[in-house]
Amino acid sequence: MRALLVVNPAATTTSARTRDVLIHALASEMKLEVVTTEYRGHARDLGRRAVQSKDIELVVALGGDGTVNEVVNGLLHEGPDPERLPRLAVVPGGSTNVFARALGIPNDAVEATGAILDALSTRSERTVGLGVAAGTPGTEDESVPARWFTFCAGFGFDAGVIGRVEQQRERGKRSTHALYVRQVVRQFLTEPHRRQGLITLERPGHDPVEDLVLSIVCNTSPWTYLGNRPMYASPEASFDKALDVLGLSKLSTPAVARYATQLLTSSPERGPHGKHAVTLHDLTDFTLHSKAPLPFQMDGDHLGLRTSVTFTGVRRALRVIV
């Protein structure tokens, strides 16, 4: 088997020595080409090249969720081919690794490599669905190109938190869960629309859902992890379904305390709920509009401000070695 290993040298939880060990382990079982990413978007370019080569049977991503997202967008640059879905393996190297962990892949890079080799020997793989987001036709965002996401997207409050975290990382701060918690508090204290939301969700054949402050789009469950604690924004979300949405219409201090507690104690059976919470399951097509530009994120990557984003859930998009 010929495989391409895409390595993010800035992966936060793997050292150069660990990466060398993993590379040797993988190379002992396949014809392996190793490329280290050098710029933002490089992993996407490598994924696209792998698909176009026709010779590479497998792409392995060694990095965090951002690296995985870039590789996936390269693999699916021209959309999924039902007759030849691309194959991906993930060695987690980031601080959270939501996509890998949601698939049951060990969070330790060495253990994950062993699990990949075992899965390849038994030809064990899983077909997963993904989400696509693009600018909405007829709006000022219509020229924004479509982009795939593997586990979540967010419009509004949570995307603002991620934007703050990225600003801190650019100043030299390490990406830690404590950093995220601090930015949640700061985003809440400065959020101008937390009592009256600007977001409207529209979907074919249904009345619009209006005045949302926060909208989280989930492709799987858990939504994220706080350390080793899984957090379930949309417990019913699944790689085998389309997309789920959690929307909150109010973020007053009591509401935040209630929903934060519900997230921290959430489970596969129960997520955030209440009169200000909207939960929608297995949506194939819908659009989120805002009365003013709001932060937007996909797979933990802040993508700037948007006023309208259209989402599509694609049930069979990618094969993953598990």
Rank of each mutant, 00 (worst) to 15 (best):
S215E: 06
K173P: 02
E202C: 14
R319Y: 00
P222D: 08
H289Y: 15
V181E: 14
Q167K: 15
L294Q: 05
P106I: 07
S234G: 11
Q183D: 12
A100C: 10
A100D: 07
F99D: 12
V6T: 07
R258C: 07
H177M: 12
R44S: 05
K31H: 15
A292T: 12
R258M: 10
G163D: 07
L85S: 10
A3S: 14
Q262T: 04
L130V: 13
L283G: 03
W223N: 13
R2N: 15
R169S: 06
N228Q: 13
L248C: 08
L46C: 05
A27G: 14
L283N: 04
A133D: 02
T139M: 06
N107A: 08
D141I: 00
V98C: 03
A27R: 13
F239A: 14
R101S: 09
G172Y: 08
L179H: 03
R306H: 13
Q196E: 15
E78I: 06
T200L: 05
V91K: 11
R2C: 08
A317C: 10
K291H: 13
P80Y: 12
E38H: 12
F155P: 00
R174L: 11
D240R: 15
Q168H: 11
D244W: 11
S121N: 10
I56G: 11
A89W: 05
T139Y: 01
W223D: 10
A146D: 08
G41P: 03
G114V: 00
A260P: 00
N107Y: 05
H42L: 08
F149E: 09
E269T: 14
A133R: 14
W223H: 14
F155K: 02
P272K: 01
G227D: 12
H24I: 06
T14C: 10
E111F: 01
S249Y: 04
F188N: 04
I56K: 11
V320G: 02
G41S: 07
R174C: 05
S95A: 14
V217S: 11
H42E: 03
G47P: 00
P204V: 15
G271M: 06
